[in-house]
Computed example of a mutant assay.
Amino acid sequence: MNTGGAPRLDQLTGLRFIAALLVFLSHVPWPSAPDWLQTMLAQGFVGVSFFFVLSGFVLSHSYTGRITGGEMSYARFMALRLARLSPLHLATALPYVLVGIWRNNLTAPVALLNLTFLQSWVPDSTYYFSLNAPSWSLSNEMFFYLCFFPLCFVAAPRRWLMTALLGLTVVACAVYAVAHYNSVILLGERTVGHWVFYIFPGFRLLEFLAGMALYDLWQRGVRLPRAALPLAWGLLFAAMFVADSVPEAFRMSLFFLPVVTLLLWVHLDRSRAICGVLSGRTMVLLGEASFAFYMIHQPAIRICSRLVGELPYRDLLVGASAFALSLVGSLLLFLYFERPAERSLKGWVNRRATAQRHPAE
């Protein structure tokens, strides 16, 4: 994990691939799997929660000192984050734009909101799942980035209070939604609860704030005992096993938030054996390519589903072939497009910032 001048926590990079894999598994159809396994695999969206919590932690680890110390302006920070997300977002959206134009079923508002990272603010699944559907989470990330810079100047206790108040607000809204609007569909094909509690950036900010709060605790030397590692993984699988019985408003993020935060926390100690595996060269490379893996896995599943057709063991063939395609494709995209494009854009941003601080005389 590249954290600028901060100490590297490569095990978190490896863990990113596990999170992306969970999301992948949740999107592959598994009709021949046992019911209990289908239930667990369907909860793979928990990987998105992990990404949001991790984002709050990593940005705090990488940028807090530079921002509060006056080394990083708001404009430069946002330009660097755009350099991180934009190349892959635009590259994976382009095929959908071209196909939409060819089929004449893509409207300008849908395309514009998606390409400008605003789709998650519209409570209509035809907007927030437009073009390359996983890109909805990038809309949330961009909102988190906008919030992060000012949050760096808020004292930790006040940020914890903000997190607690937002958490109570989300819980209260979830209780109300379960009682009155649990199955209501107003726009698109998804329920109101799906947008409010899974998509809406304002509520998903809670996970980002949890990551920032975790960083504050970690900086203060608060550590968990070794026994917490198997406990965290056990709780994750147990939560995935029973999640189907949890109302949607709670299941989509609130239910998994404590488990995900605990899972990240226990992996901050590099002395643990599993952290050594996760920080190995192979897992770090896979983790670095996990953004590309996440962004291309749904198109890969669709392609492989069509190619496999109705062959025996269809779900296993689709899963295996889509995984291979996503894995190879993500590595190629990362090595030969995403990383070079990001480095080039970030280099330009940093050179421009340097030139503005030290204009030629």
Rank of each mutant, 00 (worst) to 15 (best):
Q11A: 00
T13P: 02
T13R: 02
F24C: 01
V28H: 10
V28Q: 12
P34I: 12
Q43I: 07
F52M: 04
L59Y: 04
Y63S: 09
I67M: 09
Y74G: 06
M78K: 10
L80S: 08
L82E: 09
L88V: 15
Y96G: 00
W102Q: 13
N105V: 11
L113H: 08
N114G: 11
D124C: 05
D124H: 05
S125K: 13
Y128K: 11
A133Q: 14
W136H: 11
L146N: 02
L146S: 01
C147P: 05
F149I: 12
L151V: 06
P157E: 14
W160N: 07
L161R: 15
L165H: 02
L166E: 00
A172N: 02
A177W: 00
N182E: 08
V192E: 07
L206N: 07
F208S: 07
M212A: 04
W218H: 15
G221P: 12
V222P: 05
R226V: 11
L231S: 02
W233R: 00
F241L: 10
E248D: 13
R251D: 01
L257W: 01
D269E: 15
S271N: 05
A273W: 07
L278V: 04
S279Q: 01
T282Q: 11
T282I: 00
A292I: 14
A292T: 13
R302M: 13
L316I: 13
L316P: 08
V318W: 04
V328P: 09
G329E: 15
S330C: 13
F334T: 07
P340G: 00
R343K: 14
V349T: 12
Q356F: 09
